[in-house]
Nucleic acid binder design. Structure first.
Lengths: 335, 335
DNA sequence: CTGAAAGCGCTTACAG
DNA sequence: CTGAAAGCGCTTACAG
């Protein structure tokens, strides 16, 4: 590669000092002669000078970059979340680096270390549920960070969450209104205490209780995504199977729909279905899909805004606040 | 934020020089006493030292980071492509920054400038079709870059492309075998000369010609994604509408399916459908969807590997080579 | 209105 | 086997 032009080259060519070029580049021309200004501008064009962000970052101890670690990039919501964060950041001239932890705490840790080594100014994380010590260290260091979607108890980091109890209640109420009383639920494992999963199971139980229905163990299938079909086999092919199924996310929904197709289960006649995440094909699927919409764009936008405030030292509050957002039931044909 | 520990802190605390610490960090302990080694290791743990990648990058003039600019993050293929690139890169200790040009040449240019300012070592781009001068400059500067999916004539940059002619031929042949001879096609605008679009239209025409069918103008709908439904209105509600429709990508497919649902068009009875991009819901949709599979994982992996070679100066070839990959027809229920 | 100098945190060629 | 020094490309406080 050809050697790049630096500020020193521009300075020499324009017969001024590096300081003056730097002042020009940073728009501080308060005391600069018109003529000097023009000469520098021309030189920059002529030499095709491009600033070196790395040098600038080292000097300023600020990279104008934040890191985002999503739990699983395959969720349909991830691209919306990323877009919302990009929107907020680019309007404030901040850059975004996105990493996918893939629900793996080791990857999460590796990415956090990498991003910190790259000196990002702050972090938005969908925590996998481990790495608690790491987060504590970051809190101690006063490193700007916010959580999305999940919170970790005992760590004072602001978190932007769905009102998961309400999400479950909306689904259960809708089923009950439709005359169902055998209502199942399917969720990924709860071992890492991942907030939305835990809270949605709680919400499901409470909603049933509210309607005087006992929550049956056999109606709650807790299973890895690649075991969903076996779980459904267990749950649905019994003497009193559920007639309605509440699904906690879009990836599980795909498995349920696939299973229903394989086994010729008619939705909603044989099994009514409501899932959290308003998937893009909800309107074009047959039947159309009743879903719970999460305001993830707003959540991500607000998270990004708060993080930028923290980075700029404009957030006087102590960490550990929880911001809740209301889900919305979108009734379509599957319930 | 608390001040970070630097190499100087470690050096002082371990009573050695900065050079020695740096040697240690970079694994060059050929001539280092066991004792020194241990003392440094202990100090690093004790102080919680974390390297500063920015300083290292400035010194080495190498960031170990590449940039990826996808044309449109909403394509279902994007996440696969990104994953493939991440895989290759992380195995070589390279980092990846992904940007979404959103089919907007201005955004593309802004991102390229930003990534170059950040001193990325190379670039993988799905070019939007403009910014030709910018690419020429990069070629002149010998900046490592490869194109994916699209190529730009007159610019000597290696490109990884689908055999788009074959993709069209597979679809048309399948329709013909099914007894169709009124075969339509729908594609986004061709004005930016975006390679897959142009080549797929050509392939469609050639395949029809091969079967002695005249390509009718009215059967090729060229339209923006948000105008697809109007286009279908024009094409399908005539005296001799096509009985089969070839769709060039997943986003257009969504619109077609939505339209079919609204107008109660039965797929495949009223209209057979084949699209490029093996979408995730192809198997669970009713009907299941006949698609053209692109080996995008391999394409992206090979592109990333070549780029890393270029960065390491291990690719002796002149740029401008085109690597073609074979698509595959996956016959399901919609054709 | 502009310049010389110091320093951000590293790495490396060189000296010893 | 280890250290002192220079330098990567910037920015800024200070001097004039």
């Amino acid at each position: 590669m050809k050697k790049k032009t630096t500020i020193a080259d521009v300075a020499k060519h324009a017969a001024v000092s590096k300081s003056t070029v730097s002042q020009f580049l940073n728009g501080r021309y308060s005391y600069m002669k018109e003529e000097t200004k023009n000469r520098i501008a021309d030189t920059i064009n002529e030499l095709g000078y491009q600033g070196n962000f790395v040098a600038r970052s080292l000097r300023l101890k600020r990279t104008s970059t934040i890191g985002v670690i999503v739990a699983n990039i395959l969720h349909s919501s991830s691209s919306i979340v990323i877009q919302a964060i990009e929107d907020v950041c680019s309007s404030e001239n901040m850059h975004v680096i996105v990493c996918n932890a893939d629900e793996d705490p080791d990857k999460e840790r590796k990415y956090i270390n990498m991003l910190q080594a790259k000196q990002v100014d702050g972090l938005i994380v969908f925590p996998t549920g481990k790495n608690i010590e790491l987060y504590k260290t970051m809190v101690e260091q006063d490193f700007p960070i916010v959580f999305m979607d999940r919170l970790i108890h005992g760590v004072s980091i602001d978190a932007f969450l769905l009102d998961n109890e309400l999400a479950s209640k909306l689904a259960i109420d809708c089923f009950i209104e439709g005359g169902h009383h055998r209502i199942g639920m399917i969720t990924p494992p709860l071992d890492r205490k991942i907030t939305p999963r835990i809270e949605r199971v709680e919400g499901y139980k409470n909603a049933l209780k509210y309607h005087n229905i006992d929550a049956k163990k056999e109606y709650v299938e807790i299973t890895e995504i690649n075991e969903v079909k076996n779980g459904l086999d267990r749950m649905l092919f019994t003497d009193y199977p559920p007639t309605a199924l509440y699904i906690v996310n879009d990836l599980m929904l795909m498995e349920v729909l696939s299973f229903a197709k394989e086994k010729s289960i008619n939705i909603p006649k044989d099994l009514a279905v409501i899932n959290v995440d308003d998937v893009p094909f909800a309107d074009i699927y047959t039947p159309t899909l009743t879903t719970i919409f999460k305001p993830e764009f707003e959540m991500a936008r607000d998270a990004a805004r708060l993080l930028l405030k923290k980075i700029n030292g404009e957030d006087p509050k102590k960490g550990g606040n929880v911001y809740r957002y209301k889900p919305k039931l979108i009734v379509r044909g599957s319930s």
